[in-house]
């Protein structure tokens, strides 16, 4: 108990983290804490290392220095299975087309929790069914994967992640293939999940506007190992964004909504 009094409750804590890939520095001395119910956006230009940083949080990429703690436990002390029960990731690669039904696929999300060797427990089936329901895939439950559209597959990947019931959601470009209405619906589904289970979220995205609308914390990778983290007003400034994206950026506010866009070049 004493540790939870001393350190604030956190899903994820990074201490002096340094991540590199090849000869590129993704981040150096990165320290931040993601608390329950917080929704973090991970922003930065192409190739800056957003995916690599997310992979580091899932032990798929080894940081050069620093510490990652999940629920106050060092990441290196967690088994793969224990980690998968707490941290779930939506991969940018999406689902491979192979011969399997939607229901079979979403049930795989329960893999880190399954106890029985051969049978699917009624509880797992119920959770998987609810996950399909929440992404409006119920009518497709018996469909083959290779008959789905890109958007339907992305929703299925998200349903799988919902079925995994992680406490920390890592999302790599979650809005890929999703139309605008579904992007908003997805964010609502995630919001409900975070609220009901005191979970937290970190999503890498190119869509600054979607991030600004949905997230309440921002981590901006500048491209040289430097970074900025904090609230919208602290991070999403015209100067910071212009520097991070290598092009002049403008910010405007319409009806209390904040929008960011590149300044049109003068021809």
């Amino acid at each position: 108990m004493s540790s939870s009094i001393n350190s604030p409750m956190s899903c994820l804590e990074l201490k002096q983290l340094r991540v590199e890939i090849g000869d590129k520095i993704v981040c150096k001395d990165l320290s931040l804490t993601i608390a329950p119910n917080e929704r973090w956006a991970l922003l930065g230009k192409n190739g800056v290392g957003k995916t690599t940083l997310l992979h580091s949080l899932l032990s798929l990429h080894k940081p050069v220095a620093g510490e990652i703690r999940i629920n106050n436990t060092p990441l290196v002390n967690l088994s793969r299975r224990a980690l998968a029960r707490t941290v779930g990731m939506l991969f940018q690669e999406g689902l491979a087309s192979l011969s399997a039904t939607v229901m079979e696929t979403v049930l795989l999300g329960r893999h880190p929790h399954t106890q029985s060797l051969l049978t699917d427990s009624p509880e797992d089936i119920a959770i998987a069914t609810a996950a399909l329901e929440s992404l409006e895939l119920t009518s497709l439950a018996d469909r083959q994967l290779d008959t789905l559209s890109g958007g339907e597959k992305q929703r299925l990947a998200l349903a799988m992640l919902m079925a995994q019931t992680p406490q920390l959601f890592l999302l790599d470009e979650p809005s890929n293939h999703l139309d605008l209405a579904f992007q908003l619906r997805l964010l609502r589904v995630l919001e409900q999940r975070l609220d009901s289970q005191a979970a937290c979220l970190l999503m890498a995205t190119h869509d600054i506007n979607l991030a600004a609308r949905f997230c309440n914390r921002f981590l901006l990778l500048m491209g040289n190992g430097e970074w900025a983290a904090g609230t919208r007003d602290e991070v999403l400034t015209e100067a910071r964004l212009s520097s991070a994206y290598d092009c002049p950026m403008r910010a405007i506010t319409v009806d209390d909504n904040h929008f960011y866009f590149p300044e049109l070049p003068v021809i």
């Binding site: 798929l60 088994s79 689902l95």
Partner: peptide, 24 residues
């Protein structure tokens, strides 16, 4: 084979997904 059969189902989906779902 039966003991690892669930993991095989996950591994079929690719390395990243399998690792993400807790398969070593």
């Amino acid at each position: 084979g039966l003991i690892v059969s669930r993991s095989l189902n996950v591994l079929m989906r690719g390395e990243l997904i399998a690792t993400g779902l807790g398969v070593n």
